[in-house]
């Protein structure tokens, strides 16, 4: 009689869920991770002989709505050609009807894991690249809506990749730009996509995002109010995590880090109008901090200002002091 261990049982349940790819160019190697909507598999592209990541709807989550969402995610990713966003290679449908898309395999670690062993200045430079990527998406009319360390990967060479655009909000302007209206005609694909956008439009009251990182307007399900500044809020929460190593506020933050606290507080202001107007503006303030310049978000006390200036010009100040000391010594010895 056949015997199946508990491990075999779980393994069989997993592999039976694996997508059936017979007849196409990909073969599944193993599962990489599972989200609310889809599972990401490590797959092999037989044609190009390379490993790729294949995201497919989980059977349990499969519905016309989630299928449209996944396809929409693939199109958003294809639209956002940027070094900080994973490129999509292919999209298709399995024999059982489930939608999948194939993207570049990212080899790296999650930002929160990376942060544990990195120094603050490196993390802040990394943060600037995240802001730049999100700023690019915003310029394309796309709001991510689920920015958190778990959705940001750091590659082997320090490259940053923002992942999981499954619940991104696409602005109408961007939709029109993609709608193929340049010559006044809407082609079939554009019409199809417009239908998808309608079908996957988030209903008012729907809460999408991750607690601790989502903006108050997302928590309220105030869909109409969600815009680029909602991502700015999430970026502020990411910055806080990078600086403090936790999602909570720290009471005894050292004085040199206070400007950073002011920056994330401004980014995380409850009212969108009080936040930085864009990811770029947020990045500029962090860059000023890195250059030891005063930041917009923080009114610096005189003493801290003095310390900052001394820290910034430490070497020339020391040289001048050394020169003066030598000069005084010379004059004293000469007078004797």
């Amino acid at each position: 009689m056949t015997r199946l261990s508990d491990a075999a049982l779980e393994h069989l349940r997993d592999v039976a869920e694996w997508p059936e790819l017979t007849g196409n160019r990909y073969e599944i190697v193993g599962a990489l991770g599972q989200g609310g909507m889809g599972t990401v598999f490590l797959a092999r592209d037989r044609e190009l002989e390379r490993e790729v990541a294949l995201k497919v709807l989980r059977a349990a989550a499969s519905s016309p709505d989630t299928a449209l969402r996944l396809r929409r995610e693939s199109r958003i990713l294809a639209r956002l050609e940027h070094p900080g966003i994973v490129p999509v290679h292919d999209v298709g449908r399995l024999p059982d009807g489930r939608v999948y898309y194939v993207m570049k395999l990212v080899r790296g670690v999650r930002l929160d894991q990376y942060a544990r062993a990195a120094v603050l200045t490196d993390l802040l430079r990394l943060f600037l690249r995240i802001c730049e990527t999100i700023g690019f998406a915003h310029a394309q009319g796309v709001v991510h809506r689920d920015l958190k360390p778990g959705n940001i990967m750091v590659g082997a060479f320090g490259e940053v990749l923002v992942m999981d655009w499954g619940i991104a909000k696409v602005g109408e302007e961007a939709g029109r730009r993609e709608g193929g209206k340049a010559d006044g005609n809407v082609d079939a694909k554009a019409a199809d996509e417009a239908d998808e956008d309608d079908a996957t439009k988030t209903a008012p009251g729907t809460i999408l995002g991750t607690p601790g990182f989502m903006s108050p307007e997302q928590e309220r399900g105030d869909v109409e109010q969600i815009d680029a500044r909602s991502d700015v809020y999430s970026l502020g929460a990411v910055l806080r995590l990078l600086v403090t190593g936790s999602e909570g506020q720290l009471a005894g933050l050292p004085a040199p880090l206070r400007p950073l606290r002011a920056i994330w507080r401004k980014a995380m202001a409850p009212i969108p109008g009080d936040r930085y107007a864009s990811a770029q503006a947020l990045a500029e303030d962090v860059a000023r901090y890195l250059d030891a310049q005063p930041v917009d978000a923080y009114k610096e006390p005189l003493l801290e200002k003095g310390r900052r200036i001394i820290a910034k010009y430490q070497t020339p100040i020391l040289l001048v002091l050394a020169y003066l000391a030598m000069r005084i010594l010379f004059l004293v010895t000469r007078g004797m």
């Binding site: 059977a59 499969s62 059982d96 489930r98």
Partner: peptide, 14 residues
Amino acid sequence: PMSHDPASTDQPHG
């Protein structure tokens, strides 16, 4: 029955 038509509408699974 299991659908093998890629153009078919979204079925949960076969």
